[in-house]
Design a protein around this nucleic acid. Sequence first.
DNA 1: TATTGCGGGGTTT
DNA 2: AAACCCCGCAATA
Length: 270
Amino acid sequence: MSLQDLKQFDPFQEWTDGYVRYIYSAEDKNAQRHLSGWAMRNTNNHNCQILKKSCLGVVLCSRTCSSPDGSRLQLRPAICDKARGKQQKKLCPLCSAPLELVPCRGHSGYPVTNFWRVDGRAIFFQAKGVHDHPRPESKSETEARRSSVKRRVNSPPFGLKRRIMDTQLPGPALLPCVDSLEQPYPQTYPQTYPPFAAEPYYSSHNALGEAPPPLHKPANPRLYVGRHGYELQSYISPPNYPPAHSVSVLLLFVLFVSPAPFLEIRVPVS
DNA sequence: TATTGCGGGGTTT
DNA sequence: AAACCCCGCAATA
Ligand SMILES: [Zn+2]
Ligand SMILES: [Zn+2]
């Protein structure tokens, strides 16, 4: 990554929230895979140029139980419908209550959406909506737990082999699976926002549309009121903003080439 | 087994 | 036309 790249591209944001846009390097592996900490599933927007994903929410214990250390179960919803159906039939590993899928309604009552577009040099990202639910496990956490469970199941309960594995594998991989399912509670939600609605940033003409006036960046991209019940929780980790040293500008000539979104580029300031 | 992206088809405004 | 949605398929891991 060159110095120019650092000025032009944003570092990858795993937990984007709010109405934000980022521009990643085309070499960014996470961006290439259209990754997100949130459980995002592909959705058809009938536009081959733009990949659209929508948030599946989070799987919680229906009894909202908490473990001794105060953490709560916050599972990553399975992406495919069939797997998610099975997942919801399972019971809470802490209290055996049924699990509950909390849907995302962060974008005008609809799930938060992410949009991706590649243009060769850069990968353009845009998010719409403020997640009104706790974070699920990240994808890497879920994968790590899966392989951990697999190892545990495959290893014989007695004998030399097991002892060898216990000494070879690092601690976290052998911990009970519930240990990695939980996150400290309370979690953080946006909640200090005015009951505002409407799309403030983009041309209504297209989804990732013409960039807004460069200096029109919102003071706070989290504009929607969260789900009832989280109002009193404070917002701890600040939302991510594009770097101050860069700014999006509209390339006027592109307007005559393509009506597609993600048309803006980023140029260094000063 | 699950994830990912694609695309046909549908509803609503 | 623009946004939503659901569904199944195929490639991949
Ligand atoms: Zn429970
Ligand atoms: Zn969400």
